[in-house]
Design a protein around this nucleic acid. Structure first.
Lengths: 335, 335
DNA sequence: GTGAAAGCGCTAACAG
DNA sequence: CTGTTAGCGCTTTCAC
């Protein structure tokens, strides 16, 4: 593998000149530039990134930690991140935590090794432990998809308001017995999505003067099967729900199947609302009414902020709440 | 950010000793080791990867190029790759080509910059152009999910046989008018999945003495919508199919919806078979009979081979065909 | 416009 | 067991 020295020798110039050529510095004669480039091409020379990084103190690499790459919600966020990083000439090191807390920390440690210029972190739950793991680092970090009270930049949506809107929509359709499939709570009191969405649900209900019935609330795991089982629990309880709101489309799809398997029809017998608006929500039958999250944008805005932070540019807003939107399809009908 | 020198000074040892400690070399007294570690901890020292890589000539990073991260087939492969890379202490740089040929080449170029020790490449179609783009490099590469005639290691399945098996199953159920939704062909003659699967379909038909009817064959794009439209085309044609084989689950789901929207029922009126066995195939109604591809293993075996190649270990088998398997669920019934 | 030389932070002989 | 030293391949003053 040729080095800058090989090129310099063959081109009869100093390594400094070769370096200038490859960094597009102005003061190199056109003739020299051509010659250097020509020889480099012939030898298949490529500047060594590690050597460059060593001097510059930057790698041009961004670390990305996500809980589960196979979840379409995350893969869409990853797309957004990856795309804007590419246009800004950054590469992304992907770390899939596989829904395991230990792996998250394992990756945080790995990424601290000065490989990456910054990290985008997406977790279910941003704890003090996480905060401290990052705090000791002086590389920038931004949270994707999750707001936090800690002093960390983030890009997210208003989960409370989103759930509130979804349930309100159902109420406006005349539904009174509305089931909820929420995400894992793990006994957390902190502000996490699942809690926010649960609160939004309760708020909408109580504002409408409807009472909250625990039999209508079940916990899922953000997987189809969990949604299926949670819906089963709700459907089996005494109070027959006329609608179910699942806080993720995947769980909503599970719920849809549970409805079918109970011999009921959607939306005739029970309306279903999802959350996320992943591609899939359009191709179910019936297509899912859902809360659209701007996944791609969450990723791309997070990446944008991170890269600005890395470059020391001033970032006006570090805590961004993006808009959600109710997407009405045909999985709900009025009573 | 502290360097090895800072630690050495504070610990009253030479930088060589500090280096030894951090590389777990045996000849350091326990006392010294402790002291060094202690001070390093206090200062939050982490060895600089770029500096290490510069010397070693290795980065411990593997490049991964996939056509579309948001496709569950690929995300499962990515999981496999990421997992085994992690256990082998490699990181992966994710490159999402977004189904665009130019981006593939753009990424090949980027990865050539000696950041990565090797690359795993997954594309729809491995052309001469690709081969040459890599050939000029002396870093190892392995193809995931795709066999090739070029001298490149790969991990794949036997697509021809798999399609053959799927269609044969349908034939064994008594079906005679079997539709096929294949992938994009792009006028390629080379050995690509879509072509292989198409051939497998034709072979099964002709072996059974059934004639091939072009009206029963339509092209999809590996998306649900494409599958939906292709199925529509097939369903609309004169010959009423009693079964449809889509060469990807996602397209099969589209087909399932088309069947419904035509006022038909699956499996009563038309049986549907998919391909891949992504998680989703289990949660459709009816659950999809499909050809299971070992996605996770494809990824993990590919990573294993690549890493062995990187480490100069001899790799006995460089061209691996993993087993596929027919998974029978309830989307098919006998005639 | 171009070159010489001093590092960037670390590893790996080689000495002791 | 520990220290000295010579680079790894490149960028960046500072001269000329």
């Amino acid at each position: 593998m040729p080095t800058i020295e090989d090129i310099a020798r063959l081109a009869n110039v100093s390594i400094a000149t070769v370096s200038r050529v490859f960094n597009n510095k102005p003061d190199v004669s056109e003739k020299t530039r051509e010659r250097v480039l020509q020889i480099a091409r012939e030898l298949g020379y490529e500047p060594s990134m590690p050597a460059r990084s060593l001097i510059k103190g930057k790698t041009g690499i961004v670390g990305l930690i996500v809980p589960d790459i196979s979840n379409p919600y995350y893969s869409e966020i990853v797309r957004g991140i990856e795309d804007t990083c590419r246009t800004r000439r950054y590469n992304v090191i992907l770390c899939n935590a596989d829904n395991k807390r230990e792996k998250e920390f394992e990756y945080i440690d790995i990424l601290k090794n000065r490989w990456v210029d910054g990290v985008i972190f997406h977790c279910d739950y941003f704890s003090e432990e996480h905060y401290e793991a990052f705090a000791r680092k002086n590389i920038p970090i931004v949270l994707a998809g999750r707001a936090t009270a800690y002093d960390v930049p983030y890009v997210a949506i208003d989960n409370f308001k989103a759930a509130f809107d979804a349930v309100n929509y159902l109420i406006s359709l005349g539904h009174e017995r509305i089931g909820l499939i929420h995400g894992p709570l793990d006994g957390m009191k902190e502000t996490i999505d699942s809690v926010d969405r649960l609160m939004g649900y309760k708020k909408a209900l109580s504002e409408a003067g409807l009472k909250i019935c625990e039999d209508l609330i079940a916990e899922g795991d953000f997987k189809a099967k969990g949604g299926y089982e949670a819906a089963g629990k709700i459907l089996k309880a005494g109070v027959k729900p006329t609608a179910i709101f699942a806080v993720s489309d995947i769980m909503a799809i599970g719920a849809l199947n549970a409805v079918l398997d109970f011999g009921l029809k959607c939306p005739e017998d029970v309306s279903v609302v999802g959350f996320d608006n992943i591609d899939l929500s359009e191709i179910t039958r019936p297509p899912l009414t859902t809360i659209a999250q701007p996944m791609y944008n969450i990723g791309s805005v997070a990446a944008e902020i991170l890269i600005n932070l890395i470059n020391g540019e001033s970032v006006e807003r570090k805590r961004i709440i993006l808009d959600h939107k109710l997407v009405i399809r045909s999985s709900c009908k009025s009573i």
